[in-house]
């Protein structure tokens, strides 16, 4: 199972792939990952130059601990193959593929990536996939898509495209997306994957974002995309556990460590038995607390 502990992925910041000024600063915005975009933010006439810029950025710039994900163009576009051919050999951590409707779409991408990894002497499976589900059909197929390749790291939904496909208007509360989001989260979790929430588009409304990010966390999303650096800290706040949770998690992890040291198979905390998933959850809570800058024992 892909655990949160691999690396934090609370926030993923979209960066237009044709903006060198922003790309050179990927390491400073404070997001856990960046989504270097070759798709919606890039006009048709700039597709080639953006692809080249992102390719060279991946090869030359220091991204620090920030995860490097490239959102390429979808299978239905003439850019899809060129994007993979040029981007995969530059060793991004993952590619985010839009408009994935079925397991076949994943398999098509997977075959190309597998070949490219082989041709360029890269470790097989090292470039992961974020599958972007943006149609009603994709949501219905979510589980099959999630199960279609071990290369998939996570699922995400494309909020605006999905709303268009469903013929609905996105509201501030976002209740209309509730089922689709839950379906994606369940499909992801059922297959040991991460689930990433879509962007909140109103960059002038931090309160709206705060509300929606809290909702993302409570539904079970592992992370949320951002379209402006100012959104990152708000997203991170939403993922920060509260003080009480953290203290409890500390006791659980400490209990588990003591049990292990004493060779006991059973962990008891506050007089109650605690099993492995609870310990794993507690470890995750502490990790989130640490990321949020809270003081944490036991890690």
């Amino acid at each position: 199972m892909t655990t949160f502990l691999d690396r934090p992925r609370r926030s993923l910041l979209y960066i237009p792939g044709n903006n060198p000024g922003m790309i050179q600063n990927c390491a400073i915005y404070g997001s856990d990952g960046v989504l270097l975009d070759l798709e919606d933010s890039i006009s048709i006439s700039e597709k080639d130059s953006a692809r080249k810029l992102v390719k060279h950025a991946l090869k030359t710039l220091d991204f620090g601990t920030v995860e490097r994900v490239v959102r390429i163009n979808g299978l239905d576009t003439p850019f899809f193959r060129d994007d993979l051919e040029e981007i995969v050999p530059s060793r991004p951590d993952a590619v985010r593929i839009p408009k994935i409707d079925s397991p076949d779409d994943i398999r098509t991408a997977d075959e190309i990536i597998t070949r490219l990894e082989r041709e360029h002497g890269m470790e097989a499976g090292s470039v992961r996939i974020h599958a972007m589900l943006e149609t009603a059909r994709a949501i219905v197929n979510a589980h099959m898509i999630a199960a279609s390749s071990p290369r998939i790291l996570g699922l995400t939904i494309g909020g605006q495209d999905l709303a268009a496909d469903l013929g609905i208007k996105a509201t501030r509360e976002g209740l209309e997306m509730l089922y689709a989001k839950s379906a994606v989260i369940l499909a992801a979790k059922a297959n040991g994957l991460l689930a990433f929430d879509t962007v909140y588009t109103d960059i002038n409304n931090p309160e709206g974002l705060r509300e929606q990010a809290r909702m993302s966390v409570s539904l079970g999303f592992s992370g949320k995309a951002a379209i402006h650096p100012s959104q990152i800290s708000i997203i991170h706040e939403a993922f920060a556990p509260d003080e009480k949770e953290v203290r409890k998690a500390e006791r659980i992890v400490r209990g588990a460590q003591e049990a292990e040291e004493r060779g006991l198979g059973v962990v008891a905390v506050d007089g109650r038995m605690v099993d492995a998933p609870v310990v794993a959850q507690a470890v995750r809570t502490l990790e989130l607390a640490r990321l949020a800058g809270m003081e944490v024992e036991g890690l």
Binding site: M22, N25, I28, Y29, G30, H228, P229, S230, S233
Partner: peptide, 11 residues
């Protein structure tokens, strides 16, 4: 400012 670099510095 809305400039992300300036905002990061401010943060």
């Amino acid at each position: 400012t809305r400039d992300p670099v300036q905002l990061r510095i401010a943060e």
